[in-house]
Write a protein that binds this DNA or RNA. Sequence first.
DNA 1: TCTTTGACCTATC
DNA 2: GGATAGGCCAAAG
Length: 109
Amino acid sequence: MKRETLNFFDKVYEVAKLIPYGRVTSYGAIANYLGAARSARMVGYAMNGAGGKDVPAHRVVNRKGLLTGKHHFDGTNLMQQLLESEGVKVVDHQIQDFDKVFWNPNEIE
DNA sequence: TCTTTGACCTATC
DNA sequence: GGATAGGCCAAAG
């Protein structure tokens, strides 16, 4: 640990924290922003350590808008309720109007 | 140091 | 158009 590798995780955490309220993003988008478009899996993997951090992992979903990582949260519909609480419509662990609530990290400038 | 796994994505059948 | 298989990169064991 304690290497530049943490930079990757840290970047993921930063981007995840930069996600505005009522807005969601995808692992691939973050990976692409980090320059590791093919490492989208690592983005989600990084979220493994985001559990104890203030990283809103519930705002990060896969490209289909499906809450695949909800299984890693509380183990129930906690992730879904969090999104709904932010105004994001979620049905059956799937985000509705994903194209509207989708937030691209590249738009931050 | 090598191997396995992993909250994915893309291409192909 | 839907389902299956493979690949990519990085971290943990």
